[in-house]
Design a binder for these strands. Structure first.
Lengths: 113, 113
DNA sequence: ACCTATTTGTCCGTATGTATG
DNA sequence: CCATACATACGGACAAATAGG
């Protein structure tokens, strides 16, 4: 787990960590099922606070890239599962707002370009 | 801004706050453009920590219900803008994973049931 | 144009709870 | 039972953006 931190960057530390891990996942260096280092160990090796690492992990969880669980830690999820969750959330809010299926499809079509 | 907190609930405080505000937005009690109370004032009136309120606000921001900015505070977003962002994020990750437009449409269709 | 107060953003530290192995 | 690890909540500090006088 190779993660570099630039304290003088304009980007916050937790985003630097999240982005670093994200690129490793997208690049194939981290594959589905692999575990992330524990927040404590990573924070200790980086010399930062544990909460900062946890915030980065939460960011990755929000994007459905990793799955966090108490007592176990974080694991990289299958590449195909994440987008399903996003689709379900999108459909859920669309339904709550009374949108039709056609309107959602048009939304997707507009967002594509 | 009427928000009740149940300390003995199984749900965390920040989710109770987020859900309470969400229902007020959905119900029309909070309309687009209205400001949320500052995290400090709300936390003081509830007798809880400011960070807990900020976490609730961040949750609402993730769902594109409110927009947070430094120095200004949080304002309720127009009801129609939120789902556009979700659609763009969905399309963005779909493109990064090399999915076609048809596959995304099928994903939406499957998620609709 | 300047200054000041307000407000969120980030980070740190600590403590407690709870699920996992 | 016990060690590990995240989840939540508290408190404090400083930075940065905003609004208003």
């Amino acid at each position: 787990m190779l993660i570099r931190i630039d304290p003088g960057s304009d980007q916050p530390i937790y985003l630097q960590i999240a982005k670093s891990i994200e690129t490793q996942i997208e690049g194939g260096a981290l594959r589905a099922g692999e575990r992330l280092p524990s927040a404590r160990s990573l924070s200790a090796s980086l010399g930062i606070n544990m909460h900062t690492v946890l915030k980065a992990y939460a960011e990755l969880q929000d994007r459905s890239l990793v799955e966090m669980r108490r007592g176990r830690g974080g694991v990289v999820v299958s590449e195909t599962t994440g987008i399903d969750v996003m689709a379900r959330e999108l459909v859920g809010t669309a339904k709550r707002r009374g949108m039709t299926q056609d309107e959602v499809q048009r939304l997707i079509w507009d967002a594509w370009r």
